[in-house]
Amino acid sequence: MDAPLLLEAAGRALAHLAVLTLLPPLLIGLIAKVKAAFAGRNGPPLLQPYFDLAKLLRKQAVFSRTTTWVFRLGPVAAVVTALLAGLVVPLGGLAAPVSFDGDLLLVAYLLALGRFCTILSALDTGSAFEGMGASREAAFSCLAEPALFLGFIALALLLPPGGGLRLAELLAAAPDGWRLAAGGMALVAAAWLVVLLVENCRIPFDDPNTHLELTMIHEVMVLDHSGPPLGLILYGAAVKFAVIAMLLLSLVLPRGGGLVADLATGVAGLLAVAVLVGVVESSMARLRLLRVPTLLVSAALLAGFGVVLLAVH
C-alpha cells in the first residue's frame, strides 16, 4: 500500500473514531429536539446531553452502602463495550478501524457483555426498582437478538459460499440485496429499526421521558447511579444508540465517495436516524409492557421473511 492510500485509510479510521466518540450525545439531543418541535415547544438545547455529561463528570457521587465493586463495574463496562463494538461497525463508506472474520458476532456479544454488567450493577443495589428494570432489559434484549442475527443471516446469503465473514463485507453486500430483493432488505431494515428502538429503550418499548419508576426500563436500572458513573452510563447509552444506528444505516447508505463525502453522508445518516426516532416517539404511544415480546417476535419474523426473500432471489 502506498503512502497516499495509507494516509486515506488512516483518515477514514480517524473520522470514524471521531464520529463514534464525539457524535453520540448530539443524536440524543437531536431526538429531544425533534420531539420538542413536534410538541410545539423549544425543547432543551441540542447540546444539552454534552452539558449534562460535563456536569456529571465533575460532580460528586453518592454510593449506596449495599453496593460493591460490581455496582461501579456497570458504568465502565457500558462505555467500554459500546465503544469497542463501535470500532468494528462501519459507517456507510467509512470503514471500521478494526475488521476481522466474525467481527459481527463481537458486536452483538460486546453489547451483551455491557448488558450483563449493567444488569448486575442494577441488581447490586438490592432495590425492587432496579430489579424491575434489569428484568425487563434482560427479557427484551434477549428477544431482540434473533431479529439482529436473522438480519446478519439475510446479508450473509448475499455473499458467495466460502470466504471470510466480516461485517464490512456483509454490509457492503447490501446494495446487491436492494437490487436483487428489495422487499427482503426492507424487511431486514424494519426489523433492525425495531432492534434499535428496543435496545436503546425508546418508544414504543420504553419511554425515557416519563420518569416513573414502575414503567421504565433503562432509567429505572440506573436509578441509584450518580455523578461520574451516571455520566458514563449516559454516554455509553448514547454510543450504543450510535452503534446500532450505524449498523442500520450501513444497509442503506451510499458509499464509495471520497473521505469527505463518506463522512458527510455518514453523519447526515446518523442525524437522519435520530430524526426518525424522534418522529416515531412523537407519534405513537408506548406499548403495554407485556405486549413488547409480541412485537419483538414479529420483528424476528419480519427478518425471517427477509431471509426467505433473499434466499430465493
Binding site: 410545539g40 418508544i203 412523537s282 404511544a285
Partner: peptide, 16 residues
C-alpha cells in the same frame, strides 16, 4: 393519561 402511555401529542397539547 396520554403522557403515561407515551403519546406525546395530546400530552403536550393538553398541558398547554
Amino acid at each position: 393519561l396520554a403522557g403515561d402511555t407515551g403519546f406525546l401529542p395530546t400530552a403536550s397539547f393538553n398541558g398547554r
